[in-house]
Design a binder for these strands. Sequence first.
RNA 1: GGGCGAGUGGCGGAAUUGGUAUACGCACAUGGCUUAGGACCAUGCACCGCAAGGUUUGGGAGUUCGAGUCUCCCCUCGCCCACCA
Length: 956
Amino acid sequence: MASGYDPKEIEKKWQEVWAATKLYATTDDSNKPKTYVLDMFPYPSGEGLHVGHPKGYIATDVYARHMRMRGHSVLHPMGWDAFGLPAENFAIKTKIHPRVAVEKNIARFKEQLAGIGFDYDWSREINTTDPAYYTWTQWIFLQMFKKGLAFQSNEPINWCPSCMTGLANEDLDGTVCERCGTEVEKKSLPQWVLKITAYADRMLADLDSLRWPEHIKEAQRNWIGRSEGAHIEFSIAGSDKKIKVFTTRPDTLFGATYMVLAPEHALVKELPISNRADVDAYVASASAKSEIERTDAGKDKTGVELKGVKAMNPANKEEIPVYVADYVLGGYGTGAIMAVPAHDERDYEFAKKFNIPIVQVIEPKFFGSKEVIEKKFGTTRGDEVRPDMEFVRREAVCAVVRNPKDDTYLCVSWKSNHMNGLVTGGIEAGEDIVEAARREVAEETGYKNLKFVRTSPVAINTFFYHRVKKQNRWAHFTFVFFDLENDECQAIDEQETALHEIVWKKKEELKSFFTVFEGDFVVDLLNDREYVHTGPGMLSNSGTFNRLDSEEAKKKITELVGGVLTTTYKLKDWVFSRQRYWGEPIPIIHCEKCGAVGVPEKDLPVLLPEVTSYEPSGTGESPLATIAEWVNTTCPECNGPAKRETNTMPQWAGSSWYYLRFIDPQNSEALVAKDKEKFWAPVDVYVGGDHAVRHLIYARFWHKFLYDIGSVSTIEPFARLEFLGFILAEDGRKMSKRHGNIIDPQTVVAEYGADTFRVYEMFMGPFENTVAWSTTSIVGTKRFIKRVWKAAELVQDAPATDLDTPLHQTIKKVGDDIETFKFNTAVSQMMIFLNELEKSGSIGKEQWQSFLQLLAPFAPHVTEELWARLGNASSVHLSQWPQFDEKKILASVVEVAVQVNGKVRGSVLLHPDATEAQALSAARADTNVAKWLSGGSEKKAVYVKGRIVSFVVEQS
RNA sequence: GGGCGAGUGGCGGAAUUGGUAUACGCACAUGGCUUAGGACCAUGCACCGCAAGGUUUGGGAGUUCGAGUCUCCCCUCGCCCACCA
């Protein structure tokens, strides 16, 4: 009889054994395949860990243990991202040195982690605030400085008046500081900036090679925000000044009917404006407005015309007005736009409000090639464009007739070829468009009392093959909207009646009803009275460019007006200085004679000096600036008097390369030794969530730089990324001190044991899902572990043959599921196996060992104990992962459901290799199936091997 | 407004990718064992129905012998980005 399951005792015992035997020491053993598994390392906050933090750590632990059992050399390290504002703000409040607070927090974190039973090799622990670590952070900065990728700038930056430091765009939450929520200001300070934009295209392109969740890749793309377009200059009448704009749509230039300058734009001050007072007032009110108000996309457009100023549209040489408006942002593109109200919703809204002309220059184009039609309808209908035929262009009209009584639309359905559409027809020479539409409606449908509502400003071009006229047609459709006044009908020509029938359809039925391929567009048009066509198309009202495709026109029109095709990014260069104490000193010395000089590499690290006060000066200088003996130094180049750079690096610096240091944490010669880097890099699986987008951008940027200077051998740092879903408190809110709903993992481990805790976190739901903690549900996994404990009593020498199939299915599923991070179903499969085991009543020793091995990555302590009790001398965690036998996965008999007319009427037991004939006859022999078959004549019978038998019976 | 994703029992969630929907677990119910139990064991548990049977994966249509899964329309929710020219 085994004694009762006591997690406290066995967990402590094995953790001590593992530590004493250095069971998890990482070996750089290049004879084995390698796996590098990494969590986003934590910031050791004063709050300690809550049960949400270890979820990712458990996942990587399971994955790492499993890969080790599969014979891999495994690197699974842990460390601390310990620079940053919270520790510093705490220091300001308490006068305790941030280093002291950080050490204390780390000790607490380690204590909390210790009880969970991770397989970290603590000899590789790193800490970003350790001089032996940050010397290499500074070294990387120096290499960037040498390559001109780190440079000084005086441009106005975001300044948080509360944190008293400059911030990168990425540190903002909209327009407020993401740490303290204070509205940021613009401030001009000398800043260090990293040229991350130089890597934008590579960061974009190399995403394709990564095994990352699509939504994270998409977030990276959005963050980089590449857009291709052109810079175009507009001259100003009576001035030599020019307005330079960036546009992604140079093809719409002929439709640019006004221009807008951002309130911050330099020209607003410089131009000879006759209503100066109004303009200045507007600019002042725009800058006074909180940026949240200003950038709220939903709000009404505001702006003021610059009177006395006219710009010239370089395409059609027309004079157009210039406005200042805050819907144009100073920080993007050139801070000025050409406005094309016909093809941009924001410009449209503004133009409507200020009565500015709207000129359509792009007409939607629907080209009915064979491919397009096949893709949309899955089949061709004979109206596809004939590739070798000329097009005959016709002016045409499309009548949109609404019956206001029941809100339905008049449609016609052609009998001969199943075409469903609206009433359309050609416009006769000299005929008015609206008259033509009325005539077509009357001829085709008989309705004659129509109230004209509007014509759509947007015309479209449809290219198709006219089956009756046997020619390629290019129909230029204008839309005319009517309301039906009454049902009065005139007689329709019999010929017409024979061709088609009339149907009234509700708006929401139209999309599926239409079989003309411009149908979707027509529905959009009637859904949206203010429809603005922002897509591609065919040019109109554009002089010699008319009828050109918009894509081609982009280049040609840019050339015409002397513009330059160019690419811009949302991503801005990275403002890299912080005016704070607790960060890596930027290793630069300012000399009056030599300028900014890099600290020689032999003098690294530039140690963070001791200070008496951690307060930022508030003048834009860091606390370091107050330490004269540290600041004053000599220039490494001319030996003259010089001053140290007093700004520090942002918290992101240390985390941008830490994954490399784990590979070779003690190296004092290089940030990582080449051979070790070659062996371990890249990170095979990287796990995290939350602020991942920015961290990933920065780390990828640094990594690519390190690749360029030969420090690393891979172009990307993280080959595979798994996104972590968070754990919420039981009340569904985030766990926080403020809500008082934090659950400490130590409490849970003390009450349920580490193995239960680990299995529960993996079983809670899909790994990427956000799930609320549940103190009631965790007992389920506790029961499971206890039942495993008890099942050890069922072990016998002889294998239980009835467990062969479930065991081998479980081996396969658990292995596959760990590989794909589907831990919840891996656990559930092991529960299923345990149920089978208990039902069977006995299990062979070998089978039991295999099961323990499968469970070992999830519940390392209890499995180690039971493994040892079987007489194994070495650890289960170093044992070899069990192999499944394909043959044993297949059961010797399978239960196959039998359907009659789609309903399950019985099931039959079949050999997996049974033939269709055998399956069908067995199915027919089932009494209940026979009953349902006897009601009629059998039309069809299907057998899908091992799955299903399906009969179709026609009732007689 | 844009992008991405998701809607399955009272709850967390499964479903070999088009093949018996609701696995596994929680909660709940009944019974057992117990001095006791927030321990353990057994049974039941999508819905309607005494049953035969019928209905059910947000709603509606379609393709198919067969749809949670594929196609179209509509509704709801979540996340990220948001006047990016």
